[in-house]
Amino acid sequence: MQRRVLPGFGLSLGYTLVYLSLLILLPLSGLAFKASSLSFDQFWDIATGERALASYRVTFGASLAAAAINGVFGLVVAWMLVRYPFPGKRFVDALVDLPFALPTAVAGITLATLYAGNGWIGRHLEAFGWKVAYTPYGIVVALTFIGLPFVVRTLQPVIEDIEPEIEEAAASLGASRLQTFVRVLLPAIFPALLTGVTLAFSRAVGEYGSVIFIAGNMPLISEITPLLIISKLEQYDVVGATALAIVMLVLSFILLLAVNTLQWWAANRHKATSGEAR
């Protein structure tokens, strides 16, 4: 074993582990502890109740739709910010982080006001008979807002790092710009795009603050799972809330794992394309 030159390994790692355990790991295992007072059948009944199933459908459906919208427009925005010059670019680039900085409750009431029947945007949409606020579409709007920076900020550095040589090679071999994009650039960007979309999706699934104001919160129709957890808690149904929280927690773990795998894939892919590996 190599002798460590730098001081503080034991202290810093020890402190990290103790703090992590006390604040994160022990509390989360408390959830499992509470759930263990349930038999598996009871747990299953709660986790697959009619209202619970409908809430998963709403949460996942809206999160998936929002992540897909962000996948398309996030790619356009990231591409535009890296490649095209336009006035006020610095300002626009900084604005992309607004959803990270703006408290979710503020986003929620603002979007609800904008998309309500008499709001700036809702007024025009309702002229076409499209109600957005207080319907599942409203949830998609809120989750799109929340997820946008994840996609853009994951894509930007990857687009910046694309070597001009590969585009030049494609062009000099006679590829049209579209062919170059689809066959050469998109495969290079794809892992990052997928990582960004998964990050946006995983944030959207757990989101609460921005959604509840615009959702309408009708059971079975526009009620998201985090809200169902809160409403169970407010009715002193702690066990029911715990069971649903377990479902969400397991899902968060799976998504976290997926993000890590994707990032590993993207990093390896990046190495391969920049010619270090193989």
Binding site: P27, L28, G30, L31, K34, S202, R203, V205, G206, E207, Y208, G209, P226, L227, I229, I230, L233, V238, A241, T242, A245, M248, L249, S252, F253, L255, L256
Partner: peptide, 15 residues
């Protein structure tokens, strides 16, 4: 980052 804020709050209610 991955855990829903609502679940995080609930955890401390349980403790």
């Amino acid at each position: 980052f991955a855990v829903s804020p609502v679940v995080a709050g609930l955890v401390f209610i349980l403790i």
